[in-house]
Every structure is written in C-alpha cells, then in structure tokens.
C-alpha cells in the first residue's frame, strides 16, 4: 500500500501561511487512503496558484491552460479509463474561465474527481474578484465592491444531479482528506469545493472567518435526498455546511462508450477486415 511519503515533498511558490499547504497535505493523505500508486493517478490542472499544486507531489500531470483542466481531464479519462483522473485548480479557473466546461462536466457525470481551491479571490494576478467573491468585496479592479451575485458551485452541482458533491475546508485537514478519498472512490463526477483562505489578497474570508462559520453536516443528514441537498447547498453566510452534500445514482458517462470496457484506447490493433467492410459501403 502506498503511503503519504510516496507522494513526495517539494519546494513551493506559495506565500507563507497559504491555505494551499494543508490542502496539499490532505490531497496526499486522501490519495494514500484510497490506496493509489502515484503512477496510476493523473492530475490535470489549469493556471493559477492552485493549479501549481500537482507540481508539488509525485503523480502524472498535465498542467494545461487557464480554465481548461476539465476538457483535458475528460479526454484523458476517455482515452484511458483505468487512470484515476483528478482535475485540480482554483475558483477563477474552474468556475470563471472554465465555467462552461464545469457545467458540461457535471451534466456528463464523467468519472473525474474535481478539486477546487476556492479562496474567493484571484491570487496569481494579485487580488481581483473571482466568481465566488462575496457581493461588496472591494479590490483594485472592483473599487466600488463586487456587484455580481457570487457563483454557488455546490448548488449548481446539486441542481445538475452531479454524482458526488462535497465542501471541505483547508483548516480541517483530516476531514478534507477523508472527503477527497470518498470523492476519488466515487464513480461518476465528484466535486470537492475547498474553502482555502488566501492570506495575501483576501482579508475578508480568512481562516478565522471560516472557522467561526463552518460546521460538519450531522451523521443523520442523508446526502441522497436531493431536495434537502438543494436546501443545504444554499446555506452560506452565518453558517457554512461542510461534508458530503449530495450523492447521486446517475450512471457514469464513461459507460456510454462500450469500447472503454476493453481498456485504454492506446495500443489497440486496427481491424483490417472492418476497415475494408466500412470502405465497401461507399461502393
């Protein structure tokens, strides 16, 4: 069985005290708990401080373009269904630039794990509003405060009946590691929206701000109840629920392609009789 050490330890480009550090630790713990060897895991990330995270552990990695982690992850998963594919990036990348891909991936319910570092701000470009910034959040780009309603990824995912929808907090490491393990083990799309304070550019949603508000969904909460999940997914502000918000029963998109039951698309033989038969249809 692999352990956390197998996932390595690297120097990072993050600020001291960044919410990404405990998050990275929880990712490694979740992977180890799921019993996955690094060479069986593919991370796909976009651009942003969060998207650098997979560079700081040992696994296969495709670090692509801003907003485009999910399409690359989708293509890779469909090419090799045996890979555990994890798309990891920030709120700007997944919910802003990649918003259309986020909706499409949820609708497909493809077997991907989606880890979103949600710090409600753009860090790498130094402090502009993100799609999840609260209304009134003041930045140099939004000096009068954010006008738009914040995007609610959890409610969006539940409304589309995505396979597995959870919210974690990087201040709750063990809890988060367990959510990540469950997300990886779920077949179908699994979203873990991770509250991750940005200590440099978000002076509102700090570790202390989150700690005062977050609570664990109680044991009797049934994540299979879609209507209750919709209601819980809308809870934000004074109290913020953490844990598995929704678990659906939809079939994984991967099952739509019967050929994938035969394994990876790489290295397959071309059926030359079939080629000839197909060509003959044009006779």
């Amino acid at each position: 069985m692999p352990d956390v050490e197998d996932y390595g330890s690297f120097e990072t480009a993050w600020c001291p005290g960044c919410g990404n550090f405990p998050l990275l630790k929880a990712v490694k713990e979740g992977l180890a708990a799921a019993g996955l060897e690094p060479c069986r895991v593919l991370f796909v990330s976009g651009i942003g401080q969060a998207a650098k995270a997979p560079h700081y552990l040992r696994a296969n990695l495709f670090n692509g373009l801003h907003g485009r982690a999910l399409p690359v992850a989708t293509g890779a998963k469909l090419a090799n269904p045996g890979l555990t594919v994890i798309a990891e990036s920030g709120d700007g990348c997944m919910y802003g630039e990649g918003g259309n891909h986020f909706l499409a991936a949820l609708r497909r319910n493809i077997d991907l794990t989606v880890l979103v570092h949600n710090n409600q701000v753009y860090g790498l470009t130094k402090g502009q509003a993100s799609p999840t910034s609260g209304a009134g959040f003041v930045t140099k780009a939004q000096p009068a405060g954010v006008w738009s309603e914040p995007f609610n990824p959890v409610a969006t995912a539940v409304s589309l009946r995505a396979g597995f929808v959870a919210r974690g907090f990087s201040g709750w490491g063990d809890h988060l590691a367990d959510l990540i393990r469950q997300a990886i083990e779920h077949r179908g799309i699994s979203l873990v929206d991770i509250l991750q304070p940005c200590v440099s550019f978000n002076k509102v949603n700090t570790f202390a701000w989150y700690r005062e508000r977050v609570y664990d969904l109680p044991g009797e909460y049934d994540p299979r109840d879609w209507e209750k999940a919709m209601k819980i997914s809308m809870e934000w502000g004074e109290r913020i629920p953490l844990g598995v918000v929704y678990r659906g029963e939809r079939r994984a998109f991967d099952d739509a392609f019967t050929t994938l039951s035969e394994g990876p698309l790489a290295g397959r033989n071309t059926d030359r009789d079939l080629l000839e038969r197909i060509m003959d249809r044009y006779a």
Binding site: G64, R68, P71, G75, A76, A79
Partner: peptide, 10 residues
C-alpha cells in the same frame, strides 16, 4: 482540449 488530453493519454 479534450483531444489534447486524449492524445496525451495515448
């Protein structure tokens, strides 16, 4: 991007 991901994976 899907095609690039699929090609990367073989």
């Amino acid at each position: 991007n899907m095609a690039i991901g699929a090609s990367f994976a073989g």
